[in-house]
Design a protein around this nucleic acid. Structure first.
Lengths: 176, 176
DNA sequence: CACATTTTATAGCGAGCACTAGAGAAATGT
DNA sequence: ACATTTCTCTAGTGCTCGCTATAAAATGTG
Protein backbone atom coordinates (compact mmCIF):
# COMPACT_ATOMS: atom_id res chain seq x y z
CA UNK A 1 0.00 0.00 0.00
CA UNK A 2 2.77 2.43 0.90
CA UNK A 3 4.79 1.45 -2.17
CA UNK A 4 1.61 1.65 -4.21
CA UNK A 5 0.75 5.14 -3.08
CA UNK A 6 4.15 6.78 -2.89
CA UNK A 7 6.38 4.63 -5.11
CA UNK A 8 9.57 2.73 -4.44
CA UNK A 9 11.97 5.58 -3.74
CA UNK A 10 9.64 7.87 -1.85
CA UNK A 11 8.74 5.09 0.58
CA UNK A 12 11.43 4.88 3.23
CA UNK A 13 12.25 1.88 5.31
CA UNK A 14 11.03 3.70 8.39
CA UNK A 15 7.70 4.29 6.62
CA UNK A 16 7.54 0.56 6.03
CA UNK A 17 8.41 -0.45 9.58
CA UNK A 18 5.78 1.98 10.86
CA UNK A 19 2.91 0.68 8.72
CA UNK A 20 3.97 -2.95 9.17
CA UNK A 21 4.40 -2.34 12.89
CA UNK A 22 7.67 -4.24 13.14
CA UNK A 23 11.23 -3.25 13.88
CA UNK A 24 13.71 -2.65 11.13
CA UNK A 25 15.83 -5.74 11.95
CA UNK A 26 12.75 -7.99 11.67
CA UNK A 27 12.03 -6.55 8.24
CA UNK A 28 15.56 -7.21 7.08
CA UNK A 29 15.53 -10.70 8.54
CA UNK A 30 12.30 -11.49 6.71
CA UNK A 31 12.96 -9.90 3.32
CA UNK A 32 16.68 -9.30 2.95
CA UNK A 33 16.57 -5.72 1.78
CA UNK A 34 14.22 -3.03 0.55
CA UNK A 35 14.43 -4.14 -3.06
CA UNK A 36 13.51 -7.73 -2.31
CA UNK A 37 10.58 -6.59 -0.23
CA UNK A 38 9.45 -4.42 -3.10
CA UNK A 39 9.68 -7.30 -5.55
CA UNK A 40 7.53 -9.41 -3.24
CA UNK A 41 5.02 -6.61 -2.92
CA UNK A 42 4.89 -6.29 -6.70
CA UNK A 43 4.29 -10.00 -7.07
CA UNK A 44 1.53 -9.94 -4.49
CA UNK A 45 0.03 -6.89 -6.16
CA UNK A 46 0.15 -8.65 -9.52
CA UNK A 47 -1.68 -11.65 -8.14
CA UNK A 48 -4.30 -9.71 -6.20
CA UNK A 49 -4.97 -6.47 -8.09
CA UNK A 50 -3.10 -6.63 -11.38
CA UNK A 51 -4.46 -9.82 -12.83
CA UNK A 52 -7.84 -8.56 -14.04
CA UNK A 53 -6.41 -7.92 -17.49
CA UNK A 54 -5.01 -11.38 -18.02
CA UNK A 55 -8.21 -12.86 -16.63
CA UNK A 56 -10.34 -10.83 -19.01
CA UNK A 57 -8.25 -11.91 -21.99
CA UNK A 58 -8.39 -15.54 -20.96
CA UNK A 59 -12.05 -15.79 -20.05
CA UNK A 60 -13.76 -13.74 -22.73
CA UNK A 61 -14.44 -15.43 -26.06
CA UNK A 62 -12.73 -12.83 -28.25
CA UNK A 63 -9.80 -10.45 -27.99
CA UNK A 64 -12.18 -7.55 -28.41
CA UNK A 65 -14.44 -8.72 -25.61
CA UNK A 66 -11.39 -9.34 -23.46
CA UNK A 67 -10.06 -5.87 -24.09
CA UNK A 68 -13.49 -4.37 -23.45
CA UNK A 69 -13.76 -6.07 -20.09
CA UNK A 70 -10.17 -5.17 -19.31
CA UNK A 71 -10.71 -1.47 -19.94
CA UNK A 72 -13.99 -1.40 -18.04
CA UNK A 73 -12.52 -3.22 -15.07
CA UNK A 74 -9.50 -0.94 -15.14
CA UNK A 75 -11.84 2.02 -14.68
CA UNK A 76 -13.17 0.38 -11.51
CA UNK A 77 -9.86 -0.98 -10.23
CA UNK A 78 -7.94 2.25 -10.65
CA UNK A 79 -10.50 4.28 -8.72
CA UNK A 80 -11.49 1.71 -6.11
CA UNK A 81 -12.15 3.39 -2.76
CA UNK A 82 -9.82 2.58 0.10
CA UNK A 83 -6.89 1.93 -2.19
CA UNK A 84 -4.37 4.17 -3.90
CA UNK A 85 -5.63 5.16 -7.33
CA UNK A 86 -3.95 3.94 -10.49
CA UNK A 87 -1.66 0.99 -11.06
CA UNK A 88 1.39 0.21 -8.96
CA UNK A 89 3.21 -1.31 -11.93
CA UNK A 90 2.75 1.86 -13.96
CA UNK A 91 3.74 4.38 -11.33
CA UNK A 92 5.74 2.94 -8.45
CA UNK A 93 9.13 2.91 -10.15
CA UNK A 94 8.94 6.00 -12.34
CA UNK A 95 11.99 8.23 -11.92
CA UNK A 96 13.73 5.56 -9.96
CA UNK A 97 17.42 5.95 -9.21
CA UNK A 98 17.72 2.17 -8.97
CA UNK A 99 17.61 1.17 -12.63
CA UNK A 100 16.98 -2.50 -11.86
CA UNK A 101 13.73 -1.68 -10.11
CA UNK A 102 12.59 0.58 -12.92
CA UNK A 103 13.50 -2.09 -15.46
CA UNK A 104 11.66 -4.76 -13.54
CA UNK A 105 8.34 -2.92 -13.77
CA UNK A 106 9.01 -1.94 -17.37
CA UNK A 107 9.34 -5.61 -18.24
CA UNK A 108 6.00 -6.29 -16.57
CA UNK A 109 4.31 -3.56 -18.55
CA UNK A 110 5.74 -4.73 -21.84
CA UNK A 111 4.83 -8.31 -21.01
CA UNK A 112 1.23 -7.26 -20.51
CA UNK A 113 1.16 -5.67 -23.93
CA UNK A 114 2.74 -8.76 -25.46
CA UNK A 115 -0.07 -10.80 -23.92
CA UNK A 116 -2.68 -8.59 -25.53
CA UNK A 117 -0.85 -8.81 -28.82
CA UNK A 118 -0.77 -12.60 -28.87
CA UNK A 119 -4.47 -12.72 -27.97
CA UNK A 120 -5.19 -10.46 -30.93
CA UNK A 121 -3.03 -12.57 -33.22
CA UNK A 122 -4.94 -15.65 -32.14
CA UNK A 123 -8.20 -13.99 -33.17
CA UNK A 124 -6.71 -12.89 -36.47
CA UNK A 125 -5.54 -16.43 -37.17
CA UNK A 126 -9.00 -17.74 -36.26
CA UNK A 127 -10.70 -15.28 -38.59
CA UNK A 128 -12.43 -13.46 -35.75
CA UNK A 129 -10.52 -10.29 -36.56
CA UNK A 130 -9.71 -9.12 -40.12
CA UNK A 131 -6.45 -10.45 -41.55
CA UNK A 132 -5.04 -6.95 -42.08
CA UNK A 133 -5.32 -6.13 -38.37
CA UNK A 134 -2.09 -4.57 -37.04
CA UNK A 135 -1.83 -6.64 -33.88
CA UNK A 136 1.26 -4.84 -32.59
CA UNK A 137 -0.28 -1.38 -32.90
CA UNK A 138 -3.66 -2.43 -31.58
CA UNK A 139 -2.09 -4.12 -28.57
CA UNK A 140 0.08 -1.12 -27.88
CA UNK A 141 -2.95 1.11 -28.18
CA UNK A 142 -4.77 -0.91 -25.58
CA UNK A 143 -1.74 -0.89 -23.29
CA UNK A 144 -1.26 2.84 -23.69
CA UNK A 145 -4.94 3.31 -22.95
CA UNK A 146 -4.64 1.35 -19.71
CA UNK A 147 -1.59 3.32 -18.69
CA UNK A 148 -3.25 6.59 -19.62
CA UNK A 149 -6.29 5.62 -17.58
CA UNK A 150 -4.03 4.88 -14.63
CA UNK A 151 -2.47 8.31 -14.93
CA UNK A 152 -5.91 9.88 -15.20
CA UNK A 153 -7.01 8.06 -12.08
CA UNK A 154 -4.02 9.48 -10.24
CA UNK A 155 -4.89 12.92 -11.54
CA UNK A 156 -8.38 12.75 -10.11
CA UNK A 157 -10.61 11.20 -12.78
CA UNK A 158 -13.64 9.37 -11.40
CA UNK A 159 -14.69 5.85 -12.22
CA UNK A 160 -17.52 7.13 -14.43
CA UNK A 161 -15.13 9.38 -16.34
CA UNK A 162 -12.73 6.51 -16.90
CA UNK A 163 -15.58 4.30 -18.04
CA UNK A 164 -16.67 6.88 -20.60
CA UNK A 165 -13.07 7.02 -21.76
CA UNK A 166 -12.93 3.23 -22.03
CA UNK A 167 -16.05 3.14 -24.19
CA UNK A 168 -14.49 5.63 -26.57
CA UNK A 169 -11.28 3.63 -26.76
CA UNK A 170 -13.22 0.48 -27.57
CA UNK A 171 -14.64 2.07 -30.71
CA UNK A 172 -11.32 1.60 -32.50
CA UNK A 173 -11.60 -2.18 -32.56
CA UNK A 174 -12.51 -3.70 -35.92
CA UNK A 175 -16.06 -5.06 -35.82
CA UNK A 176 -16.10 -8.80 -35.71
CA UNK B 1 17.62 17.60 -19.21
CA UNK B 2 18.60 15.96 -15.95
CA UNK B 3 15.17 16.64 -14.44
CA UNK B 4 13.59 15.45 -17.67
CA UNK B 5 15.45 12.18 -17.70
CA UNK B 6 15.53 11.27 -14.04
CA UNK B 7 12.71 13.28 -12.48
CA UNK B 8 12.63 15.84 -9.71
CA UNK B 9 13.54 13.69 -6.72
CA UNK B 10 16.08 11.45 -8.37
CA UNK B 11 18.05 14.44 -9.61
CA UNK B 12 20.24 15.71 -6.78
CA UNK B 13 21.63 19.18 -6.42
CA UNK B 14 25.13 17.79 -6.96
CA UNK B 15 23.92 16.24 -10.22
CA UNK B 16 22.71 19.69 -11.22
CA UNK B 17 25.88 21.55 -10.27
CA UNK B 18 27.89 18.98 -12.21
CA UNK B 19 25.94 19.24 -15.47
CA UNK B 20 25.59 23.02 -15.16
CA UNK B 21 29.27 23.26 -14.25
CA UNK B 22 28.77 25.75 -11.45
CA UNK B 23 29.18 25.58 -7.70
CA UNK B 24 26.30 24.97 -5.37
CA UNK B 25 26.25 28.53 -3.97
CA UNK B 26 25.98 30.00 -7.47
CA UNK B 27 23.01 27.80 -8.17
CA UNK B 28 21.29 28.89 -4.98
CA UNK B 29 22.09 32.54 -5.66
CA UNK B 30 20.58 32.27 -9.12
CA UNK B 31 17.47 30.20 -8.42
CA UNK B 32 16.76 30.27 -4.70
CA UNK B 33 16.29 26.59 -4.13
CA UNK B 34 15.87 23.29 -5.94
CA UNK B 35 12.12 23.64 -6.29
CA UNK B 36 12.29 27.08 -7.88
CA UNK B 37 14.90 25.85 -10.31
CA UNK B 38 12.63 22.97 -11.20
CA UNK B 39 9.69 25.28 -11.78
CA UNK B 40 11.82 27.38 -14.11
CA UNK B 41 12.92 24.26 -15.95
CA UNK B 42 9.30 23.17 -16.31
CA UNK B 43 8.33 26.56 -17.68
CA UNK B 44 11.20 26.51 -20.17
CA UNK B 45 10.28 22.95 -21.14
CA UNK B 46 6.68 23.98 -21.64
CA UNK B 47 7.68 26.80 -23.94
CA UNK B 48 10.23 24.85 -25.93
CA UNK B 49 9.05 21.23 -26.06
CA UNK B 50 5.60 21.05 -24.54
CA UNK B 51 3.74 23.58 -26.63
CA UNK B 52 3.19 21.49 -29.75
CA UNK B 53 -0.23 20.45 -28.49
CA UNK B 54 -1.54 23.94 -27.86
CA UNK B 55 -0.09 25.05 -31.20
CA UNK B 56 -1.80 22.20 -33.02
CA UNK B 57 -5.16 23.02 -31.43
CA UNK B 58 -4.81 26.70 -32.23
CA UNK B 59 -3.55 26.45 -35.78
CA UNK B 60 -5.60 23.61 -37.23
CA UNK B 61 -9.08 24.45 -38.48
CA UNK B 62 -10.95 21.81 -36.46
CA UNK B 63 -10.57 20.12 -33.09
CA UNK B 64 -10.18 16.82 -34.86
CA UNK B 65 -7.40 18.09 -37.10
CA UNK B 66 -5.75 19.67 -34.07
CA UNK B 67 -5.89 16.45 -32.11
CA UNK B 68 -4.59 14.52 -35.11
CA UNK B 69 -1.60 16.78 -35.47
CA UNK B 70 -1.07 16.75 -31.73
CA UNK B 71 -0.95 12.97 -31.54
CA UNK B 72 1.30 12.67 -34.59
CA UNK B 73 3.69 15.29 -33.29
CA UNK B 74 3.70 13.64 -29.88
CA UNK B 75 4.98 10.47 -31.54
CA UNK B 76 7.91 12.44 -32.92
CA UNK B 77 8.54 14.62 -29.87
CA UNK B 78 8.51 11.78 -27.38
CA UNK B 79 11.05 9.75 -29.31
CA UNK B 80 13.26 12.57 -30.60
CA UNK B 81 16.92 11.53 -30.65
CA UNK B 82 19.29 13.34 -28.32
CA UNK B 83 16.60 14.01 -25.75
CA UNK B 84 15.05 11.98 -22.97
CA UNK B 85 12.02 10.09 -24.27
CA UNK B 86 8.53 10.93 -23.12
CA UNK B 87 7.16 14.06 -21.54
CA UNK B 88 8.70 15.82 -18.55
CA UNK B 89 5.32 17.00 -17.32
CA UNK B 90 3.97 13.46 -17.27
CA UNK B 91 6.90 11.75 -15.59
CA UNK B 92 9.20 14.09 -13.71
CA UNK B 93 7.14 14.40 -10.54
CA UNK B 94 5.61 10.95 -10.27
CA UNK B 95 6.06 9.48 -6.81
CA UNK B 96 7.26 12.75 -5.49
CA UNK B 97 7.62 13.23 -1.75
CA UNK B 98 7.13 16.97 -2.23
CA UNK B 99 3.38 17.17 -2.82
CA UNK B 100 3.54 20.75 -4.14
CA UNK B 101 5.78 19.70 -7.00
CA UNK B 102 3.59 16.74 -7.86
CA UNK B 103 0.52 18.96 -7.71
CA UNK B 104 2.12 21.57 -9.92
CA UNK B 105 2.62 19.14 -12.79
CA UNK B 106 -0.79 17.60 -12.20
CA UNK B 107 -2.35 20.99 -12.71
CA UNK B 108 -0.45 21.37 -15.97
CA UNK B 109 -1.69 18.01 -17.22
CA UNK B 110 -5.29 18.75 -16.31
CA UNK B 111 -5.03 22.20 -17.87
CA UNK B 112 -3.93 20.60 -21.13
CA UNK B 113 -6.97 18.36 -21.12
CA UNK B 114 -9.22 21.31 -20.33
CA UNK B 115 -7.77 23.07 -23.37
CA UNK B 116 -8.64 20.13 -25.59
CA UNK B 117 -12.10 20.03 -24.10
CA UNK B 118 -12.86 23.66 -24.80
CA UNK B 119 -11.59 23.28 -28.36
CA UNK B 120 -13.98 20.38 -28.82
CA UNK B 121 -16.84 22.34 -27.31
CA UNK B 122 -16.14 25.17 -29.72
CA UNK B 123 -16.47 22.77 -32.64
CA UNK B 124 -19.67 21.31 -31.20
CA UNK B 125 -21.13 24.80 -30.85
CA UNK B 126 -20.10 25.59 -34.41
CA UNK B 127 -21.73 22.44 -35.72
CA UNK B 128 -18.42 20.95 -36.84
CA UNK B 129 -18.83 18.10 -34.39
CA UNK B 130 -22.17 16.39 -33.65
CA UNK B 131 -24.18 17.98 -30.84
CA UNK B 132 -24.22 14.74 -28.80
CA UNK B 133 -20.41 14.68 -28.60
CA UNK B 134 -19.19 14.03 -25.06
CA UNK B 135 -16.52 16.72 -24.98
CA UNK B 136 -15.29 15.82 -21.50
CA UNK B 137 -14.77 12.16 -22.31
CA UNK B 138 -13.29 12.80 -25.73
CA UNK B 139 -10.84 15.33 -24.33
CA UNK B 140 -9.87 12.99 -21.53
CA UNK B 141 -9.41 10.22 -24.05
CA UNK B 142 -7.02 12.36 -26.06
CA UNK B 143 -5.13 13.36 -22.93
CA UNK B 144 -4.89 9.79 -21.72
CA UNK B 145 -3.64 8.80 -25.14
CA UNK B 146 -0.89 11.41 -25.03
CA UNK B 147 0.11 10.29 -21.56
CA UNK B 148 0.00 6.65 -22.59
CA UNK B 149 2.18 7.44 -25.59
CA UNK B 150 4.66 9.17 -23.32
CA UNK B 151 4.81 6.11 -21.11
CA UNK B 152 5.24 3.90 -24.16
CA UNK B 153 8.08 6.10 -25.38
CA UNK B 154 9.80 5.66 -22.03
CA UNK B 155 9.26 1.93 -22.28
CA UNK B 156 11.03 1.74 -25.62
CA UNK B 157 8.39 2.25 -28.31
CA UNK B 158 9.77 3.72 -31.53
CA UNK B 159 8.42 6.75 -33.35
CA UNK B 160 6.82 4.55 -36.01
CA UNK B 161 5.10 2.44 -33.36
CA UNK B 162 3.75 5.53 -31.64
CA UNK B 163 2.54 6.90 -34.96
CA UNK B 164 0.66 3.69 -35.69
CA UNK B 165 -0.87 3.99 -32.24
CA UNK B 166 -1.85 7.59 -32.90
CA UNK B 167 -3.62 6.66 -36.13
CA UNK B 168 -5.66 4.07 -34.28
CA UNK B 169 -6.58 6.56 -31.58
CA UNK B 170 -7.76 9.07 -34.17
CA UNK B 171 -10.34 6.63 -35.47
CA UNK B 172 -12.56 7.33 -32.47
CA UNK B 173 -13.30 10.90 -33.51
CA UNK B 174 -16.74 11.51 -34.97
CA UNK B 175 -16.50 12.16 -38.68
CA UNK B 176 -17.00 15.78 -39.49
C1' DC C 1 47.67 50.79 -9.44
C1' DA C 2 44.59 50.54 -5.14
C1' DC C 3 40.29 49.72 -3.58
C1' DA C 4 35.21 48.20 -3.25
C1' DT C 5 32.12 44.86 -4.79
C1' DT C 6 30.55 40.90 -6.65
C1' DT C 7 31.24 36.07 -7.75
C1' DT C 8 32.95 31.76 -6.88
C1' DA C 9 34.93 27.63 -4.50
C1' DT C 10 35.79 24.90 -0.18
C1' DA C 11 34.13 22.84 3.38
C1' DG C 12 30.70 21.57 6.36
C1' DC C 13 25.81 22.06 8.55
C1' DG C 14 21.75 19.15 10.33
C1' DA C 15 18.67 15.68 8.73
C1' DG C 16 17.20 11.54 6.78
C1' DC C 17 18.49 7.56 4.14
C1' DA C 18 19.29 2.07 3.94
C1' DC C 19 21.03 -0.95 6.89
C1' DT C 20 23.14 -3.54 11.18
C1' DA C 21 25.65 -4.70 15.69
C1' DG C 22 24.77 -6.00 20.29
C1' DA C 23 21.86 -6.30 24.30
C1' DG C 24 17.87 -7.77 26.30
C1' DA C 25 13.30 -10.31 26.13
C1' DA C 26 10.66 -14.21 24.85
C1' DA C 27 10.10 -18.69 23.63
C1' DT C 28 11.61 -23.28 23.53
C1' DG C 29 13.36 -28.07 24.97
C1' DT C 30 14.52 -30.94 28.64
C1' DA D 1 13.42 -24.70 36.92
C1' DC D 2 16.89 -23.79 34.03
C1' DA D 3 19.83 -23.43 29.79
C1' DT D 4 19.74 -22.44 25.18
C1' DT D 5 18.09 -20.75 21.21
C1' DT D 6 15.43 -17.50 18.81
C1' DC D 7 13.58 -13.11 18.15
C1' DT D 8 13.26 -8.06 18.66
C1' DC D 9 14.36 -3.43 20.18
C1' DT D 10 17.65 0.37 20.86
C1' DA D 11 20.95 2.72 19.14
C1' DG D 12 23.99 3.93 15.94
C1' DT D 13 26.90 2.98 11.31
C1' DG D 14 28.45 5.56 7.10
C1' DC D 15 26.42 7.95 3.41
C1' DT D 16 24.01 11.38 0.71
C1' DC D 17 20.61 14.74 0.76
C1' DG D 18 19.39 20.07 0.31
C1' DC D 19 21.48 23.98 1.69
C1' DT D 20 24.89 27.69 3.56
C1' DA D 21 28.89 30.31 6.23
C1' DT D 22 33.24 31.79 5.18
C1' DA D 23 37.01 33.01 2.71
C1' DA D 24 39.53 33.46 -1.70
C1' DA D 25 39.40 35.01 -6.43
C1' DA D 26 37.71 37.84 -10.03
C1' DT D 27 35.68 42.00 -11.54
C1' DG D 28 34.58 46.86 -12.10
C1' DT D 29 35.93 51.80 -10.78
C1' DG D 30 38.82 55.99 -9.42
Amino acid sequence: MAFWEHGYEATSVSDLTRVMDIGAPSLYAAFGDKRSLFEEVVQEYGARYGSFGARALAEEPTARAGAARMLREAAAEYTAPGRPHGCLVVHAAANCSTPEVEESLRRRRNANIAEIKSRIEADVAAGVLPPDTDATALARHTGAMIQGMSQQARDGASRAELEALAEIALAVWPRA
